[in-house]
Simulated scan of single mutants.
Amino acid sequence: MDKLGLFPIIALLRVLSVLPYSFVARFGSALGTTLYRLPSRRKHIVLVNLRLCFPTKSALEHEQLGRAHFQHVVRSYLERGIQWFGSAKSIDRIVQIESEIDLDDKNAPPTIFMGFHFVGIEVGCMRYSTHLPVASLYTRMSNAPMCDLARRQRGRFGAEMIERATSARKIVGLLRSGKPVMLAADMDQGVDNSVFVPFFGVEACTLTSISRLAKLGRARVVPFVTEVLPDFRGYKLTIFKPLSDYPSSSETVDARRMNEFLETQILRFPEQYYWVHRRFKHRPVGMAGVY
């Protein structure tokens, strides 16, 4: 897709940004239900992930959970309109914040906000950036014009957008200067700088970047999760207490602890986790692929 090809997408998102939030959310949910009925690669990935992570659930339960997930994913795509082109006030209205730490503490230590890929992660990060300084890491997309658009719109309230491949020295410098960094490390990005640790009992290729950066930046690690509220009432960004004794002396132990925390949150609203991602793309030596 070239820049010209982005025009229809931008036009659609701008229209969606001015429509009532509840209408867009309901329409996205209905569209997700329709798309789930069609055979697709993404549907296959979702069901494989659900079977691996919830082996005791029945085939019907996997289907029901997969359908609910498609509703949330497609809805989140349409809600990019308000996220990318709506005002700060419009985002503030639909995202409430509940924090177990003092976000206005001027003497706070270097902080890494550890995020997870629930469908609401993007709007949660943007909600934080409407009021407080932050840097946020992103992974470059293969489509350059779309990547540039996403980076520009996600950072439009002042968030400093940093490509994941950036030197750790720059990130450590930001941490030590007092600017918190938002980083999600729960996707399979390849075996480099990763370890295999269990995720719902399945060995998953898990990044160790948060542990390493926390050590280098002498930073506390604060988990956060953005959940979709029922009845189309928006979102809640929950910021938890810092993880105790994290980082430890072992990156493998830290990666396992991250996955354990994530599991507790997924069990609260499993339909909202990003199951369309190939979480088990890379497998330990000798283990067959699953997709």
Rank of each mutant, 00 (worst) to 15 (best):
R127A: 12
D148Y: 03
I94V: 13
V74H: 03
P133A: 05
V181H: 08
Y138A: 06
T139F: 12
L175V: 09
P180Q: 08
L50F: 07
S167P: 03
P55H: 08
M114A: 15
W84D: 05
S99W: 00
K170E: 14
A59G: 08
V119T: 13
L174A: 08
I112A: 05
R67A: 01
F118V: 07
K170R: 15
Y138E: 06
A135G: 11
A108T: 09
G124W: 06
E63I: 02
Y77L: 15
F85L: 11
A59H: 12
L65F: 01
F85D: 00
E63K: 11
G66S: 07
R156I: 07
T111I: 13
S129K: 04
S90N: 13
R164C: 07
F85Q: 10
R67T: 12
D104F: 08
P109Y: 11
T139M: 07
W84V: 10
P110G: 04
P110F: 05
A159S: 12
L78H: 07
E100A: 13
K170C: 00
I97H: 04
L50T: 06
A68H: 06
R140N: 08
F113C: 00
C125R: 15
V95H: 04
R169N: 12
I97A: 08
H117S: 05
F157G: 10
E98Q: 13
P109A: 14
D104R: 09
M141R: 15
R80Y: 13
M146C: 05
L78Y: 02
I162C: 04
K57L: 15
F70R: 01
F116A: 11
L103W: 07
V73A: 11
E98P: 03
T111P: 14
M114N: 13
F118M: 03
L174W: 09
P109R: 14
A108H: 13
P55N: 04
Y138H: 08
Q83W: 06
H117K: 01
C125I: 07
A144M: 12
L149S: 08
L175A: 00
K89P: 00
M114E: 10
V119M: 07
E61N: 10
I112M: 08
E79G: 04
E79Y: 05
F157K: 06
D92F: 02
P110K: 06
Q64P: 01
D92A: 12
A59F: 03
H69S: 11
G178S: 09
S58A: 03
F116Q: 07
R164V: 06
A108M: 10
G86D: 02
K89E: 15
A88N: 07
R80H: 11
M161L: 11
R51K: 14
C147D: 15
H72C: 08
V73P: 02
A68F: 05
R67M: 11
P133R: 07
C125N: 14
E160Q: 13
V181A: 05
F113Q: 03
M146S: 09
H72W: 09
H62Q: 09
I171Q: 03
V123Y: 02
A68W: 00
V123W: 00
K179E: 12
E98N: 11
L132P: 03
V181S: 10
T56D: 15
A159H: 03
D102L: 06
Y128F: 15
R93T: 14
S58W: 04
Y128V: 01
E100D: 15
D148R: 12
A168K: 09
P180G: 09
F113S: 03
M141D: 14
P133D: 08
C125T: 10
N107I: 07
L149P: 05
E100C: 10
G155R: 01
R75D: 03
V74M: 03
